[in-house]
Write a protein that binds this DNA or RNA. Structure first.
Lengths: 139, 139
DNA sequence: CTCACTATTGCTATGACTTGCGATAACCGA
DNA sequence: TCGGTTATCGCAAGTCATAGCAATAGTGAG
């Protein structure tokens, strides 16, 4: 199935802007912000409104083409959905970001599922805390 | 130690607004938004600027009097720091919020600490996912 | 190919913060 | 008690994200 068919199967349409937004996210190696997506699109094609970018990222997320995560700051980061999953540790003190495999969370995920029937997406939000280096400095 | 001394020990000052903001959070039974704090202060005393509320919440957080958490929506919720700790489960589909004791997270917290030296604050951000009811409906 | 239908776009407006700046008022030492 | 220093305040402006709305453009049917 291609993008166009996937979209139409859900009553959505394949517009120029939508295709450009997806391509921008796919070409990016790592997480990108909506604003970075807009800049990339503007570099390739012409102008694009920020709200269009946001709405398309959301639409593409529904289709399973992209996903977003919340890192330390309140900016949302987007990336292609077919990347390997990992969670983020963000230091509250120095802002350092670290990646950990999702396997670290499987125990907790299973526990929340059996005890609360809750399917947790633990990679979605970064885990805030104090990194090793800052913990040493502070004590 | 009282609020005034705590503040001055850090080179900060005890202003009318700062005291009112703290009292507003302390009187609130549960989590409150910055806007709700502003409204409470305005009810008690006169006018207060939103930016003053935000800056004071931040200052009081530094001193350990209040803390904030991020729930599903984009708004930040504040509460007194001496409340019993609990984490939140937020359903991505219906928005339902559930509370779980932090004890559920101690295993993961210990693991992140030994493997990465990272002191995780797992109650800070809500865990997103799909609640039991929505999981049943979707399948 | 043409046309009607309606999803999507861009624009504007709102919400939740955040930041810069001059005026004000805590605080401390004399 | 009286300044002088400077943290903090209120206001204006800016950012990121979402929502409403008229105009536009994909789409499927004929």
């Amino acid at each position: 199935m291609d993008l166009g068919s996937d979209l139409r199967a859900k009553g959505k349409r394949l517009t120029v802007q939508r295709r450009l937004v997806l391509e921008a996210v796919q070409r990016a190696r790592h997480h990108v912000t909506a604003d970075e997506v807009a800049k990339r699109v503007r570099g390739e094609a012409g102008q694009i409104d920020p709200s269009t970018v946001y709405r398309n990222l959301e639409a593409l997320e529904e289709l399973g083409y992209v996903t977003h995560t919340h890192l330390g700051s309140r900016v949302t980061r987007w990336h292609r959905a077919d990347m390997h999953q990992h969670a983020h540790l963000v230091c509250r003190s120095c802002g350092a970001e670290d990646e950990v495999p999702v396997s670290v969370f499987t125990g907790l995920a299973r526990r929340l599922r059996t005890s609360h029937g809750f399917r947790a997406d633990l990679a979605h939000s970064a885990v805030e805390g104090i990194c090793r280096r800052c913990a040493v400095v502070q004590s």
